[in-house]
């Protein structure tokens, strides 16, 4: 069924369109004046001005160090496994590889690479990490001259990630183990 929309017939001045045109000119010139002389622009001049991001913003994932400045990652490769776009690649140390920074931690990755071109900032790596070693942080703009530069290695990720104390699991385990050495147990 066709619906008839009742339209109000236009008055003489409305039919002439000229008052409407004058009104349009007025509106546009008001905006032009505002943005020219009063600085009322709605845009942001991007590289110089940036958004203030909320605390819980989830940008690029970076590796973090513990309070002693040691690598928290233990190369379990869970994040590599869970990563939907396969952006993470971990090279484990192997049997005779370098030992972990921290005493008592089993191992740390020989190399940890995140391809920032592939990363989708989903946060699965952060969620799956048993060591709280990787966090999505406040960084969302990556600039590079080529694709190779967009693959961030362990060193770079740690430098960008900063420190995150967290649960200090291995420190407590070490203390426990040390306490076990002397009998009776003192903890």
């Amino acid at each position: 069924m066709a619906i008839t929309v009742n339209r109000k017939p236009l008055s003489f001045w409305e039919k002439l369109y000229l008052p409407a045109i004058a009104g349009g000119l007025k509106v546009t010139i008001k905006h032009a004046y505002g943005s020219l002389f009063q600085g009322k622009v709605v845009t942001m001049e991007y590289p110089e001005q940036r958004w203030t991001l909320p605390k819980n913003y989830r940008g690029a994932p970076y590796l973090v160090k513990d309070q002693d400045g040691s690598t928290k990652c233990v190369s379990c490769q869970l994040c590599e496994f869970v990563c939907p776009p396969k952006a993470i690649r971990i090279t484990p140390p192997g049997q005779d590889g370098q030992a972990a920074d921290r005493a008592n931690a089993e191992k740390m990755p020989k190399e940890f690479e995140i391809n920032m071109l592939r990363c989708i900032y989903c946060g699965m790596c952060q969620e799956v990490c048993p060591e709280e070693a990787i966090f999505l942080q406040n960084d969302w703009s990556h600039i590079a001259h080529n694709r190779e530069e967009m693959i961030y290695n362990k060193e770079k990720l740690l430098a960008l990630g900063g420190t995150h104390g967290g649960i200090q699991k291995w420190k407590h385990k070490l203390e426990e183990a040390e306490a076990q050495e002397s009998f009776p147990v003192k903890v």
Binding site: T28, H31, S35, L36, K40, V42
Partner: peptide, 13 residues
Amino acid sequence: KISAWIQDRVGPN
């Protein structure tokens, strides 16, 4: 430029 000003933008700068 004028379109930018009218639309509350800055335009090429």
